[in-house]
Amino acid sequence: MTKQLTCVQCPLGCALEVCLDETDAVVHVSGQSCRRGTEFARQEAVSPVRVLTLAVPVPGALEPLSVKTTAPIPRDLIPVAAEAIRRLSPQLPIAAGTVLAANICDSGVDVVATKELFR
């Protein structure tokens, strides 16, 4: 089986081709200009992951709080994690880097504030 991907690791946007065997293991990657493209293709073809970023409303604040996961999570977990993050109710004041949810959806990844938010 062959998968066609576009690398997003740098501005080049290389057109990648990933060959998988019958067990869905990566056999060969082509089209990459650098090692980052190879690593991206191997991960993306078998188990895609993404860093999740959202904005969460904060009672008493004039603007929403931007949050993100501290590491990529499996792509299929994103809808469940996004819903869990939307249910958060952080309280002012909030410092950048504050952990708002530890181990979101048992992923081993935390959700943190990406900016300071005061009254």
Rank of each mutant, 00 (worst) to 15 (best):
residue 87 R to A: 15
residue 31 G to N: 00
residue 83 E to N: 13
residue 24 D to P: 09
residue 99 V to E: 06
residue 29 V to Y: 01
residue 82 A to C: 10
residue 38 T to Y: 08
residue 29 V to K: 01
residue 10 C to Q: 10
residue 86 R to F: 09
residue 111 V to Q: 05
residue 8 V to C: 09
residue 66 S to N: 06
residue 49 V to A: 12
residue 23 T to N: 15
residue 7 C to Q: 02
residue 56 V to P: 06
residue 83 E to H: 14
residue 80 V to P: 09
residue 82 A to N: 04
residue 5 L to N: 00
residue 5 L to D: 01
residue 3 K to A: 07
residue 17 E to S: 10
residue 62 L to N: 14
residue 11 P to A: 12
residue 41 A to N: 08
residue 115 K to R: 15
residue 114 T to C: 12
residue 58 V to C: 07
residue 81 A to I: 11
residue 59 P to Q: 11
residue 74 P to V: 06
residue 73 I to S: 01
residue 112 V to S: 07
residue 47 S to I: 01
residue 105 C to D: 14
residue 29 V to F: 00
residue 19 C to V: 15
residue 3 K to L: 14
residue 96 A to P: 06
residue 63 E to G: 06
residue 57 P to Q: 00
residue 8 V to Y: 07
residue 32 Q to A: 13
residue 15 A to W: 08
residue 89 S to R: 15
residue 96 A to N: 11
residue 24 D to C: 08
residue 90 P to W: 03
residue 8 V to R: 07
residue 32 Q to C: 09
residue 55 A to S: 07
residue 103 N to D: 13
residue 19 C to M: 14
residue 93 P to F: 00
residue 11 P to Y: 12
residue 63 E to R: 14
residue 77 L to Q: 03
residue 34 C to S: 10
residue 22 E to M: 14
residue 118 F to I: 14
residue 117 L to W: 05
residue 27 V to G: 10
residue 73 I to N: 00
residue 54 L to H: 02
residue 72 P to Q: 04
residue 18 V to N: 03
residue 91 Q to P: 11
residue 117 L to M: 07
residue 84 A to I: 07
residue 6 T to C: 10
residue 27 V to D: 12
residue 79 P to Q: 13
residue 98 T to Y: 04
residue 55 A to Q: 13
residue 55 A to L: 05
residue 46 V to W: 00
residue 45 A to H: 01
residue 8 V to W: 04
residue 18 V to I: 07
residue 57 P to Y: 01
residue 26 V to Y: 11
residue 59 P to F: 06
residue 85 I to H: 11
residue 39 E to C: 05
residue 21 D to K: 04
residue 111 V to D: 05
residue 46 V to L: 08
residue 91 Q to F: 11
residue 99 V to Y: 08
residue 90 P to V: 12
residue 109 V to A: 06
residue 100 L to E: 04
residue 4 Q to I: 10
residue 12 L to K: 13
residue 24 D to L: 14
residue 48 P to V: 02
residue 55 A to F: 11
residue 73 I to E: 00
residue 68 K to D: 02
residue 113 A to P: 11
residue 17 E to F: 09
residue 89 S to H: 14
residue 54 L to D: 02
residue 33 S to D: 12
residue 64 P to R: 03
residue 53 T to F: 03
residue 54 L to W: 00
residue 40 F to G: 00
residue 73 I to A: 03
residue 2 T to A: 14
residue 28 H to P: 11
residue 31 G to I: 00
residue 7 C to L: 11
residue 7 C to I: 09
residue 31 G to V: 01
residue 6 T to I: 15
residue 79 P to M: 15
residue 94 I to W: 04
residue 65 L to N: 03
residue 69 T to P: 02
residue 97 G to E: 08
residue 106 D to G: 13
residue 23 T to F: 09
residue 5 L to W: 02
residue 44 E to K: 08
residue 31 G to K: 00
residue 83 E to Q: 14
residue 40 F to K: 01
residue 26 V to S: 10
residue 57 P to C: 00
residue 63 E to V: 15
residue 89 S to W: 12
residue 6 T to S: 13
residue 108 G to W: 01
residue 54 L to Q: 03
residue 82 A to I: 06
residue 73 I to Q: 01
residue 74 P to Q: 06
residue 95 A to E: 10
residue 80 V to Q: 13
residue 18 V to K: 06
residue 6 T to E: 13
residue 40 F to I: 01
residue 86 R to N: 07
residue 20 L to H: 06
residue 94 I to L: 06
residue 24 D to S: 12
residue 96 A to M: 10
residue 3 K to T: 07
residue 41 A to H: 10
residue 25 A to K: 14
residue 42 R to F: 00
residue 88 L to C: 05
residue 79 P to L: 15
residue 34 C to E: 05
